[in-house]
């Protein structure tokens, strides 16, 4: 018995020491339940706390790469890069803020767009990176978004947008305001063409982004507890001079007030979005739940009935028609 203990204790101590020497970056405290979470595991769980399911923010690229089928994606409109047309300067130069944000995130601007597959269904997906100047929308975000819409329109494939943004980018002044009109106009073309657009609202979405592309989904879907609104809570409090109601502007509040269609957990996002999009696109339901795509994932699918007013079946892939 003592023998066994002797053996075990030093190894425990050793592992304690090891843990102490682990770089701090490997652990993260959940801001909600304060559980200390092991980062690789947290990342595997899409930044959703493994203890309390609190949804933490997710970087744009990580979002898209985990949402789309492994290896199925290519980036769109990466060549569009920011230009400081106004030579804007506050306490810092806009140019310097851009450079700093680019360094910190590895992104050129706050929106990443990709063409890829969702359970083998071709889609276009875009995501905002909140770390990049608060996910603010300037000319690059607007242009990348429109180019993503254009791919959807041309290939008749659904568009999914994950928004996370403080609003329009002040440093681009009226140019950024006009991106609201620009992106909304592009989405109106989607609506006219009958191609589904799903807007996923993730914490937080405010201002010019919420008052344009983020609220124009055929489906507006929020992640649990996401804060979504037009004006920020502080501005509202200062204006109305009363205390804001409990849970104000949370996803659940929006659902109650009829502003979003549903709340979907990030862990179910792939399954549920596929399920709904497959109905809009008249594809067969996928028989199994969210398994990792297998080799012949590309050949699931498609004896879809033509939708009214459409010239061709929209997404017949090469070598498809497997289950006819």
């Amino acid at each position: 018995m003592s023998n066994w203990l002797d053996k075990i204790i030093p190894s425990l101590v050793r592992s304690e020491n090891k843990r102490a020497s682990v770089p701090e970056g490997l652990w993260k405290k959940c801001p909600k339940c304060e559980a200390v979470l092991y980062l690789p595991e947290l990342e595997k769980n899409l930044n959703v706390c493994t203890k309390c399911e609190h949804h933490m923010r997710l970087a744009a690229r990580q979002r898209l790469e985990t949402f789309l089928d492994k290896g199925s994606f290519t980036e769109l409109a990466a060549e569009v890069e920011p230009v400081d047309r106004l030579k804007f300067r506050d306490t810092k130069k806009y140019k310097d803020r851009l450079t700093a944000a680019q360094k910190a995130t590895g992104e050129k601007d706050a929106l990443v767009a990709m063409r890829g597959k969702l359970k083998s269904m071709p889609v276009v997906a875009v995501a905002f990176d909140f770390r990049f100047m608060g996910g603010s929308m300037g000319a690059v975000v607007g242009e990348r978004f429109v180019r993503a819409v254009n791919v959807s329109l041309k290939e008749k494939i659904p568009l999914i947008c994950f928004s996370a943004s403080g609003g329009a980018r002040m440093q681009e002044a009226l140019i950024s305001l006009m991106q609201m009109a620009k992106t909304s106009a592009a989405l109106e073309k989607m609506r006219q063409a009958g191609i589904p657009y799903i807007s996923v609202l993730t914490d937080p979405v405010y201002g010019g982004v919420s008052a344009s592309l983020a609220m124009l989904g055929d489906l507006n879907i929020a992640e649990p507890k996401a804060l979504v609104g037009f004006a920020g809570p502080r501005v509202i409090e200062q204006t109305v001079r009363e205390k804001l109601p409990e849970g104000f502007q949370r996803a659940e509040f929006l659902l109650e007030h009829g502003q979003v269609d549903m709340i979907v957990s990030r862990l179910e996002m792939r399954d549920r979005l596929y399920s709904m999009l497959s109905m809009f696109m008249h594809r067969f339901a996928e028989p199994v739940s969210d398994v990792k795509p297998t080799v012949d994932a590309d050949v699931v699918a498609v004896t879809e009935p033509k939708r009214a007013g459409e010239q061709q079946a929209s997404t017949v892939e090469q070598g498809a028609a497997a289950n006819s």
Partner: peptide
């Protein structure tokens, strides 16, 4: 920027 405006979907 008011509570009622938010409830009724200012953004939308």
């Amino acid at each position: 920027p008011g509570i009622d405006a938010e409830e009724r979907g200012q953004s939308e």
